[in-house]
């Protein structure tokens, strides 16, 4: 991996495993450093230096975990969808491996969002669990992640697994959106509306807004960092398999 590679002329060249390894290896330390700083600053700011909400008391501090993890949970699936489409259309192996790498991260984030939601819901709604549509959609999303990962794990041939999971991811996305609207219809929720959008006037007030943004950045960084690490692992594992197969041939 030490030979000099010519300068890439388009983004697609990063689909070349070797080039991906070079680039991701170079950026990894920066992503790791940025993520650590953002997470520590954001969470510490949120935990130690924000006032309590007059209505929700100190439970409002859970927002710094709940909202970012929920956002990453959804966007991880979105990223898997894009990666799956790229794999199906352009057959870049790195893309399929990135989708595979993202699933456990997304599932963990979903779990965090569910757990913090339940812990937050206990004092606010008086119950650990309420079949609120948003909370329920996350449970359904978690099931989707489980099915997706199980399918990856079950199929032995790598390319077949990549193809089938990509198809499942696309169909699953449609059904996940459908479920979301079905659940809203099924039970009108307890959740407050958007807690973070561009017009922050009517949303969370300033004192909570900035640490929340930093936490968001931290969680996104964490996601990117893990994707890089896990995709690199997958690329290496794939190369090893190929080498071993070649060994057996000769």
């Amino acid at each position: 991996m030490s030979e000099k590679l010519p300068r890439p002329s388009s983004l697609w060249e990063y689909a070349n495993p070797r080039r991906f390894m070079a680039l991701s290896g170079a950026t990894l330390p920066f992503v790791a450093a940025g993520t650590t700083v953002a997470l520590i600053v954001g969470l510490a700011w949120g935990f130690f230096f924000t006032p309590d909400d007059y209505r929700q008391g100190s439970t409002v501090k859970i927002i710094y975990l709940h909202v970012p993890s929920a956002m990453v949970a959804i966007n991880a699936w979105l990223m898997m969808l894009v990666a799956s489409l790229i794999w199906l259309i352009r057959r870049h192996h790195v893309s399929a491996l990135a989708a595979k790498a993202a699933a456990p991260v997304g599932a963990t984030m979903t779990m965090i969002a569910l757990a913090t939601g339940a812990i937050w819901g206990q004092p606010m709604w008086g119950a650990w669990w309420a079949w609120d549509p948003r909370l329920t959609s996350f449970l359904v999303l978690f099931l989707f992640y489980l099915g997706y990962m199980a399918l990856w794990a079950a199929i032995e041939n790598d390319d077949t697994a990549a193809d089938l999971t990509a198809v499942l991811c696309i169909v699953g996305s449609v059904f996940a959106v459908l479920s979301r609207y079905a659940l809203v219809f099924w039970n009108q929720g307890l959740h407050q509306g958007a807690s973070l959008s561009l017009d922050k006037e009517e949303n969370v007030s300033d004192v909570f807004y900035w640490p929340l943004l930093i936490c968001l950045a931290g969680f996104v960084g964490f996601f990117v960092l893990l994707i890089l690490i896990r995709t690199r692992t997958e690329v290496r594992a794939r190369r090893m398999k190929a080498l071993q197969a070649r060994e057996r041939m000769t």
Binding site: L143, G147, A150, V171, L178, S179, A182, L183
Partner: peptide
Amino acid sequence: LTVGLKRGGLLLSLIVLPLYVPTLI
């Protein structure tokens, strides 16, 4: 999706059940 697998039965349920959510609702 699962036709090529030896013991796909349980996996099949895990994949299909989340897809059944909207219809069931």
